[in-house]
Design a protein around this nucleic acid. Structure first.
Lengths: 343, 343
DNA sequence: GTGAAAGCGCTAACAT
DNA sequence: ATGTTAGCGCTTTCAC
């Protein structure tokens, strides 16, 4: 007989979950009706919707997002690439992004480059395979091949943290200006022997820009702008150690401009432990505006950047674009010099 | 003519990227050969692999992970559910997880419940639609329906932070014992009027367990175990405010056992600001073991939990299981009382 | 308001 | 070592 021999080919693999068809059979409608009842409840009759809902509950249906994404060629994934999670700054940015994405039903895919551009490219290439709705990445500099790829990405793309020539949209602040602002403050306080203390500046472009801003101000005053650099991640204890090393190497040092509040706080506390008066014996400045830096005694002078706002704004740029509005392409979130008593 | 009228149905939508077939055509092989050249390079001839690689580069192929996942019924996604990202503890756990997952090519999907069990269920139900390879969630208590769902999840599942009756695997510590340990320490130091200061204990079950351990010790010494609670998230400034409120309400208070190091540090710094001597006028204890708490003067007495280790261990349990090994089902990471001078 | 058919891009299973 | 075939479970398109 010409009967097709399609016996009971069992499912190939997988979790063997109920599918849309199972629900449809149970509800006595077609699969597409179930799909509509789920996604656009208004497009089906009330009675149908109720039947479908009952059937879903009965069979324990969980929609297969993978199949849906493949069919519609659009996931609700938004990859977010950051250089580090050890740095609170990025955690706060992520919080801002996540709060907004959550609200709109998008799922963040977190990627951590550890300040490596190769890793950034690798991550983004993988993420592109997930049909992402949009993309968020840190900084404006990328490997050449990646820049090309990004230019061709036909969906919202936000480069965060820095300001400048972006591929698509951009939220951030001017780090060079921030460094210059702090240098100006220290100069205005009368300090002349000022050391900049940083970590891994070759990897951390934004910190390098802050140093550059700092340096240009000191140089234009005819001063030296010595830099002390460590090849490890910023850390409290490192701040304390840095204080010692700097004072040994530059005995005349009056003020230290640290790469961030973590190192600055470590140095401030170490200074107290050694009986040094801050700022009389040594002035200390940070960057970031971490909450506890403002709780220290003396309070740390620092530059506050609106980190969670960067996340929120980036997310809103994306949502706006997706919903057909015209968000601003480049947002400067600015920064504030927060004076404590440490300078 | 009976010629099928299948003209040039253009692509329906999407990014219009090159597909496996495009690469295959370019390389003069079949699609499956390209797939193999990508995923199991050893299974094709060297010459073939090179042709394929050239073709991939030429057409700019980016694998479609969604299609691959649908076909193989297994993504490389591992959802991770945490109650908060504002709490550093969870950020560190996530770092531990991510480091290990990254190494093995798994992608974390981050979910934030904001301490809501309803939200937890919602998140997990969505994540299940992504054919996850495994699942990590926080705590042992879930909504009833969710517990059932989790029991039926046929892949590695780790419940982190607490210890107890887990669905599958479990990594964490005994919070009740931690609270009792700190209470014992304070009693041993001779304090008798001890207040526990916490936030949102109804939501934060682990903190509530610590209070319970604390309380049971004081009560068994015939002492009161007053609790002061605030309905907002723990924060530095809240620690300072708490110090004042507690001293107003319990003028005899000798020691405060805080829910975490953030509040404890805030209180410690506020005490200094007010000229109170720590620990002579007021002793202060925390929980978590944050790095800066050890940098304060006096150093904060606290309980250190190995947070990143929790993440790493959970990830390794999953990887081990996936690779056919038999990981330990329940890992107690323990904790350490870290004595500072604040008690 | 509902349904039938086609196909998203890939991989598993079974050839050869 | 490579190819053929048949889906994975859903959404799109088009028809009624």
């Amino acid at each position: 007989m010409s009967e097709p021999q399609g016996g009971d080919r069992r499912r190939r693999k997988g979790l063997d979950n109920p599918t849309l068809d199972d629900v449809a059979r149970e509800a006595g409608v077609s699969a597409i009706t179930v799909s509509r009842a789920i996604h656009r409840p208004d497009s089906v009759r009330e009675a149908t919707r109720e039947k479908v809902e009952a059937a879903i509950a009965k069979v324990g249906y969980v929609p297969n997002m993978v199949a849906g994404t493949l069919a519609s060629a659009s996931s609700r994934f938004i990859p977010v690439i950051v250089p580090s999670l050890s740095n609170v700054v990025f955690v706060e940015v992520i919080q801002g992004l996540q709060a907004v994405f959550d609200q709109h039903g998008y799922q963040m895919l977190l990627g951590n480059t550890d300040y490596s551009m190769e890793r950034e490219e690798e991550l983004i290439r993988t993420f592109l395979g997930w049909s992402p709705t949009a993309l968020v990445t840190t900084g404006l500099r990328h490997r050449e091949g990646l820049s090309e790829l990004l230019k061709r990405f036909p969906r919202p793309l936000v480069e965060i943290m820095e300001l400048g020539q972006a591929v698509d949209m951009n939220v951030g602040m001017d780090h060079q200006r921030a460094g210059a602002t702090m240098a100006d403050h220290l100069l205005a306080q009368g300090y002349r022997h000022i050391v900049f203390a940083g970590t891994r500046l070759a990897h951390n472009y934004r910190a390098a820009q802050r140093y550059e801003g700092h340096r240009s101000r000191l140089v234009s005053e005819g001063l030296d702008a010595p830099l002390m650099e460590w090849q490890q991640d910023s850390y409290y204890d490192l701040g304390g150690a840095a204080l010692d090393e700097i004072r040994r190497q530059y005995p005349q040092v009056e003020a230290i401009h640290f790469i961030d509040d973590v190192m600055a706080s470590g140095a401030l506390l170490e200074a107290q432990r050694q009986g040094l008066r801050v700022p009389d014996d040594i002035a200390i400045a940070g960057f970031t505006g971490l909450p506890f830096a403002r709780a220290l005694i003396p309070r740390l002078t620092t530059i506050v950047s609106p980190r969670e706002a960067i996340g929120r704004l980036a997310a809103h740029q994306i949502i706006d674009r997706l919903e057909g509005r015209q968000p601003e392409a480049c947002i400067d979130v600015g920064f504030t010099l927060q004076r404590g008593e440490s300078t």
